[in-house]
Simulated scan of single mutants.
Amino acid sequence: MPSVNLRHSVRAIILDEDERVLLCRFTIPEPVGTVVWATPGGGMEPGETQLAALSRELQEEVGLVVTADPPHVWHQEVVAPGHAEGYDGVINDYFLVRTAAFKPRGTLSDDQLAAECISGLKWWHPHEIASYAGTDLFSPRDLASSLTTLITAGAPAEPTWLGL
């Protein structure tokens, strides 16, 4: 069986006191016009721990400083050529970060965010995601139900495996 080259990424489910989740609006170049709302985070650098990568990504994208080791709540593997440039897919590990609401603004400039395909940031209630009728996508696709379960049941003892 050929080996698969997957990009290892860390992502944060940032929940505020009103159970809203902070999502990044990714405008994907191909196919043109694809917009995906996903949790902040990104790829791990060689030799970087998950917490170090998560801390770096959150400071860069949304301006949140994470000092404690948040619970690892979800795990996702997507093997799909073209899903991550230069890779056969991604491994996403999601961590739960609870915080007071804040106005997100990371250390990256608008041009740097655009280079990462990030075109906006927004707080969403799970019911807004569930009832969304537009053309934008959410990642993971079952984000609303996964969030509702996480909020209702709390962090699982072992990370929950997610689909696409």
Rank of each mutant, 00 (worst) to 15 (best):
P81S: 08
I28A: 00
V66H: 07
D18E: 15
A115Q: 13
L150W: 08
A12G: 07
T148R: 08
G41Y: 01
V90N: 13
P29L: 03
P29E: 02
R20C: 15
A133L: 14
T49K: 07
V4A: 05
T149Y: 08
G106Q: 02
W124C: 04
A101Q: 11
T152W: 08
W37M: 00
F138E: 04
F26E: 14
I28E: 03
A144D: 12
G33C: 12
P46D: 12
D16S: 08
A84Y: 09
M44I: 13
V65Q: 11
D93E: 15
P156M: 07
I28P: 01
A133W: 07
T99R: 13
T148L: 11
D88W: 02
P29Y: 00
E60V: 04
E77R: 12
F102L: 13
Y132C: 07
F102R: 14
Q112H: 07
W124F: 15
E77D: 05
A38F: 04
D16H: 09
R56F: 07
V10M: 08
G106L: 05
P156F: 06
V10I: 08
P29I: 02
A144H: 07
E48N: 10
V90E: 15
P71E: 04
P159N: 04
R141G: 12
D136H: 11
T49H: 06
E45D: 14
L64S: 03
Q59Y: 11
L147G: 06
P159I: 09
K103P: 06
D136A: 15
G33R: 04
I118N: 00
I129M: 04
V65N: 12
I129P: 10
R105D: 12
T160R: 12
E61W: 03
E19Q: 13
I129F: 02
L22D: 09
V32F: 09
D93V: 02
V66F: 06
N92Q: 11
P126L: 02
H127M: 11
A115V: 06
E45G: 01
V79H: 10
Q76N: 13
F95K: 08
E85S: 09
L23S: 10
D18M: 10
G82C: 05
E128Q: 15
A101G: 13
D16R: 08
V21K: 00
V65W: 07
T34C: 07
G33D: 05
F138G: 04
R7H: 04
S139P: 02
R20N: 15
G134K: 07
A100T: 14
P159H: 05
P29T: 01
I129E: 03
S9N: 12
T148D: 14
A100Q: 15
T27A: 14
H8L: 09
L23G: 11
